[in-house]
């Protein structure tokens, strides 16, 4: 393994702890306690991923993020304090790949780091293969529009074509309640499966495949009297 993480964080004690924790997990950690040193290290060392604190003594984390992005497309994980005026949206617009609010669960840091690295390797491979860039990502769920498949934690979920179209219609309108009629319209072009007619039946089948607990759905939610909604914010 031995992947290299560049940690740009002004709090040295926290940086030491993160280094120790990630070191135990098998990562090599380089630490810079300000933005300038971080940028210098980033140019010199072959790092695989950057963990960047939003608040740095010498410069704005967002600025560092933009400058790193201008140099390379190494993945960036942004550390923010929850409720910061600099919200996640801004960070992601500046080119960060993910963000994690302080105080974070150490295990979550590890999980996100792994996910980013996996994605960046996948992206690199995909770029070699060309195309296949249209992937919708919702937390642990990935919907690949090109390949028309769905993965949960990297494991494929065997959806039928009709179910995929239904899930896609929901996911493309994440955060909006979709009525059954609107869903029917969205999947009109798909080939009908003769034995199931009702949207509800299909939704429960999709849930069985993509939900951790289909009885307590967290991704496709029911709103009685209106329809279904695909959750915008997932773990």
């Amino acid at each position: 393994m031995d992947e290299c993480v560049l940690l740009i964080e002004d709090d040295t004690r926290l940086a030491g702890m993160v280094s120790e924790y990630l070191g135990k997990a098998g990562y090599r950690v380089l630490h810079a306690d300000n933005g300038a040193r971080g940028l210098a290290l980033h140019e010199r060392e072959p790092v695989d991923v950057v963990i960047l604190d939003l608040m740095l003594p010498d410069s704005d984390g967002l600025d560092i993020c933009r400058r790193i992005r201008a140099q390379s497309d190494r993945p960036i994980l942004m550390l923010t304090a929850r409720g910061d005026p600099m919200d996640r949206v801004v960070g992601l617009e500046m080119g960060a790949d993910d963000y994690l609010p302080k105080p974070f669960e150490p295990r979550e840091l590890l999980a996100r780091l792994r996910a980013i690295l996996r994605r960046s390797r996948g992206a690199a491979k995909a770029q070699d293969d060309k195309g296949a860039s249209d992937v919708l990502r919702f937390g642990r769920l990935e919907i690949d529009l090109g390949a028309r498949d769905v993965k949960l934690d990297g494991t494929p979920c065997p959806l039928t074509g009709y179910q995929f179209a239904l899930l896609l219609a929901l996911a493309q309108h994440a955060g909006r309640v979709m009525s059954r009629d609107a869903l029917m319209d969205a999947v009109k072009g798909e080939q009908f499966e003769a034995f199931d007619r009702s949207i509800d039946v299909h939704v429960s089948r999709i849930r069985a495949l993509i939900e951790d607990d289909p009885r307590k759905p967290k991704r496709i939610l029911t709103v009685r009297g209106i329809g279904y909604v695909f959750a915008k914010a997932q773990d």
Binding site: R13, M55, A81, K102, F104, E105
Partner: peptide
């Protein structure tokens, strides 16, 4: 600044 200043030590404790 408060959010950041309060949460960095909290993160340290958590780690």
């Amino acid at each position: 600044n408060a959010s950041h200043e309060l949460r960095t030590p909290l993160t340290r404790i958590r780690l």
